[in-house]
Design a protein around this nucleic acid. Structure first.
Lengths: 335, 335
DNA sequence: CATTAATTTGTAACCGATTACAAATTACAC
DNA sequence: GTGTAATTTGTAATCGGTTACAAATTAATG
């Protein structure tokens, strides 16, 4: 397979000129430009990017560690890839579902230079590791820890949840249930806090009995339905921390003979595509998926390229998450 | 940042020994092994994988070009990643939704050595390009063309569709509709053929009026519902080429006041997770997603590692796709 | 035309690993 | 201890680009 020397030989120029033909064509004379172009054509030369990357000590790749489980995340990833493309980065996508050991391996790709940065949907770096110069280029997306060592791009889960519950309150609901997500996801705790804030501000006492633990999945929504239906008094509205769960919940409640939203109002979180098609269409919080991804990637690019001032960037950056009102919520029935 | 020379110097050995410490530790004496290990520890040395890859002229990465649109594909990707991990490959995942131009760029990554192989969910390589030695390591997954130049791993769409329609026939249905997928996807045509084969073999005349064109999406199922409901005579069963469409279809039909499966039976294709939870649970064809991915990756590894005998591998490899009977289908009502 | 500045070009060092080959060391048998 | 084989080690070439620097060429100016 032809290399740069072959091209130089055929074109009758030096390797430096061929190299410049790619990296800074404006510095190559007209005459030589054509000579090189012809040689490249003739030899069907493709520069060896392994060599280029090595030589420049750059990989032009970033790693995205995401749990590939639902449509929302796919949209986030689209946002990431769009920005990556214009910035000239390739996105290496791995599934966070893999064992932790594998995840360590992926973090090591930063130190070994295989990737220039990482977008993680759940950054958990021990502080000692963080010292490492190589481990700087990390952005946390969608889930945040108050004392995160990395820049964070996410929606303000506390506020979003609070808004959602406030809306239910405005419809006259007082007895509002909560269906949580996975416990180890920070967002679960933030949304729970928002739920509790709204109730407290409205002067409604909190009760743990109204909270059922789920795991974001459709199946856990189905399960929770039985428990909610059995409660006395039965909540007149339920705040679910994901759309998939909300849809399972609705299905489960309907199976118990309850009507949505007449008997129980349900709200979701994410605004997945299915939300507007299900029956009834789901009132939910829209997370700006693509924008989250795009913002995350842009932040990462800044870290990589400008070797950013750490101080200025360590703050979390929140995008707005709006309430989308559809048919799964209604004013409370007057008894 | 420390390099191999530094380690060698600190350990008091040659770079070759340090290199061998990683690549073939059994060839390094006990004494030197400890010396090297200590030096590595002391310097916090991480081998530069850009250099290693260049030196070995290997990237240990494969590219997966997939339309990241539904849960079925995510499962396929899980299968790919599992095999990739044990084989020591990193998976580079890109979204096929991007413009064709970008896709060309990805194919070029083979020639430029950035990846060692490609798994494409829709391979369309012009034959002239195919000549290139560099473009050998390509596997087509899930969708196949009769005269594909690459190895293919997929389910036998014709047979699967035929089975599905046979099942409807066995329930006594005669007037069976068909909701197709995207026209440019080969699977659409194969499944249509299977649908037609089943009818023909049963001695039922074909009619294009019973076929509605969809695009695999939920929304197109909703749209098709109106058309099917309006048909005279109305089909008593419908074969849908994707689960998402089938679910939309069911929802649309219910909105028209029809009962599923009492008035119309519906079958899907894929067996996405949601299929068993929707109402009624969907009778469908289960595609072995993970196995498809795993098989595809294994085939690619063979191409890469053994530099396979082309002849022996150019045949398509079909995995079984089973019919899963659930509640969306029923025997035809006796009038 | 001479002089100086700007542009273009080539030479060769360099990036950090791997590895062929030769040399040195160790192990073993007699 | 000697001879031979097996193991371990080091030297130096190599992969295919990039790029600093110097040299050569071209352009601009008086």
């Amino acid at each position: 397979m032809a290399n740069i020397k072959d091209v130089a030989a055929v074109a009758g120029v030096s390797v430096a000129t061929v190299s410049r033909y790619f990296s800074s064509p404006e510095k190559v004379s007209k005459k030589n430009t054509t000579k090189v172009a012809t040689a490249i054509e003739q030899l069907n030369y493709k520069p060896n990017l392994l060599a280029r990357n090595f030589s420049q000590s750059r990989s032009y790749s970033v790693l995205v560690i995401a749990p590939l489980v639902n449509h929302f995340l796919l949209d986030v990833i689209h946002g990431i890839q769009e920005v990556a493309r214009v910035k000239g980065f390739t996105v290496l996508l791995v599934d966070a579902i893999e064992p932790q050991q594998a995840k360590d391996k992926y973090y090591r790709m930063l130190e070994t230079r295989l990737v220039e940065g990482i977008i993680d949907f759940k950054a958990q770096i021990k502080d000692d590791k963080k010292q490492d110069a190589g481990l700087q280029n990390i952005v946390t997306l969608c889930d945040y820890d108050e004392n995160s060592a990395t820049p964070v791009i996410a929606v303000d889960d506390v506020k979003a949840a609070e808004n959602s519950v406030n809306y239910l309150l405005s419809l006259g609901h007082q007895n509002i249930g909560c269906l949580t997500g996975l416990d180890f996801v920070h967002a679960t705790h933030h949304r729970k806090l928002g739920y509790q804030n709204a109730l407290t501000k409205a002067g409604i006492p909190l009760s743990d009995k109204l909270i059922i633990n789920g795991d974001f999945s459709f199946a856990s929504g189905i399960n929770a339905a039985k428990e909610f239906a059995r409660m006395k008094p039965r909540p007149s509205a339920i705040f679910s921390m994901s759309d998939e769960m909300a849809i399972g919940l609705i299905q489960g409640l309907k199976a118990q003979g309850l009507q949505i939203p007449e008997d129980i109002s349900v709200t979701g979180f994410d605004d997945i595509e299915f939300a507007k098609y299900c029956d009834p269409p789901l009132t939910t919080i829209r997370q700006p998926a693509k924008e989250l991804g795009a913002n995350g990637m842009r932040t990462l690019c800044n870290l990589i390229e400008d070797n950013y001032d750490q101080e200025s960037i360590l703050t979390a950056y929140f995008l707005p998450a709006d309430l989308i009102v559809r048919g799964s919520t209604a004013a409370i029935k007057v008894k």
